[in-house]
Design a protein around this nucleic acid. Structure first.
Lengths: 198, 198
DNA sequence: CAGTTCTCACCTAGGTGTAAAATT
DNA sequence: AATTTTACACCTAGGTGAGAACTG
């Protein structure tokens, strides 16, 4: 066991795929630059957090990627949708293919900076308040109430991990069939996950 | 949440598949008869337990099936290997197809009887000694030692749940390619998981 | 009374930030 | 001095059988 889990997690919603076509969904994380960042890190636009909240998500797909990042650097997660017939071999070690039948999406809202210790007290509070595993550090004095609390609860709510069933794929195909034709993607995520040191 | 997890879990090892062919692996549980069993249940052949222990298992595939069974009945788990080109639609609700390209395996060692309360003290001890979640009830006086303890540890050891990666499939295909040609299957399992009542 | 359901203490398994210690 | 590593208390999440309570 090495490194720590990314939080909040990268989440994407995909619509408009061709139900008669098979696709690969790939994800990677690429460096934004070669700079080494020092404290305090530049302020991060956290207002995109709630903006992208959506209520209906049809299918949860958990991928445990073990990605090694360098600390104190900026990274950009990307999502790739690859039509299966685009005859390029897929491998975890090779770069994602490009060209016809391959679409890559990256969102500036999800750029994050890796750290081993939080340099900013606001980031610490954000994570303590949002991550259920950090409940032990929560300041019960400043509890959020009402709609705000509910929204925050649902913003990062996730069902327990499970393996997909045939019914999931059936429902997925049904839902894909009811939408349009051109690929659309939206994402929810924030900066500031802690990264695993090399 | 309803019912309880099957323990020990059904485990199969498959070899001899054609690496250039795609397959579905399916599993179901069928009733052995319509009888309703009463205490004490007939003695179960538990000696097949260690007999089938194997050291090399290349790939773990976790499937969380939610199967509803009736209590106090006997059931037989089955495993199906279905060549993908056998053009019959696969569904969780329809019965498994049969015919060319479909092979079904069932092992009498894995027949089990569903209960809501253990009728046999030996079964209780078996489960307490083997299931890591029941460690709290273990009688530390009768600890097994030496090779026996190691074997028992490995007999039901399982890695943490994770999603498969491309490398897993790559390795899987390599390993399949090195073995023979005709499908072979072996299984480890014992009777007596507790079932979810209807 | 035979079976079933429910609650509970006790586990496994692993994700948090903290603070001290180690490293560079 | 800045950064990383490590051990730790405190969580989430959920799987055990025991035993009480419940049901027909």
């Amino acid at each position: 066991k090495a490194g720590r889990r990314m939080f909040p997690a990268m989440r994407v919603k995909i619509a408009g795929l061709d139900p008669h076509q098979q696709y690969y969904i790939a994800m990677d994380i690429v460096p934004v630059d070669n700079k080494r960042y020092r404290c305090p890190p530049p302020p991060t636009p956290a207002n995109g957090l709630i903006t992208w909240l959506r209520c209906f998500i049809s299918l949860y797909l958990y991928i445990y990627l073990q990605i090694i990042l360098h600390s104190m650097h900026k990274y950009q997660p990307r999502v790739h949708i690859i039509r299966k017939d685009s005859s390029s071999e897929l491998s975890a070690n090779k770069p994602v293919p490009s060209g016809e039948g391959v679409k890559t999406f990256s969102f500036s809202e999800t750029v994050f900076t890796t750290v081993t210790a939080y340099q900013n007290q606001q980031i610490t509070r954000l994570k303590i308040d949002r991550n259920p595993f950090a409940k032990g550090f929560r300041d019960s004095g400043r509890n959020r109430t009402g709609l705000e609390a509910i929204m925050e609860t649902y913003a990062f709510w996730r069902p327990p991990v499970r393996t997909l069933t045939f019914e999931d794929f059936t429902n997925m195909q049904k839902q894909q069939g009811t939408t349009g034709t051109s690929p659309t993607t939206s994402s929810t995520g924030t900066p500031s996950p802690s990264g695993a040191a090399h």
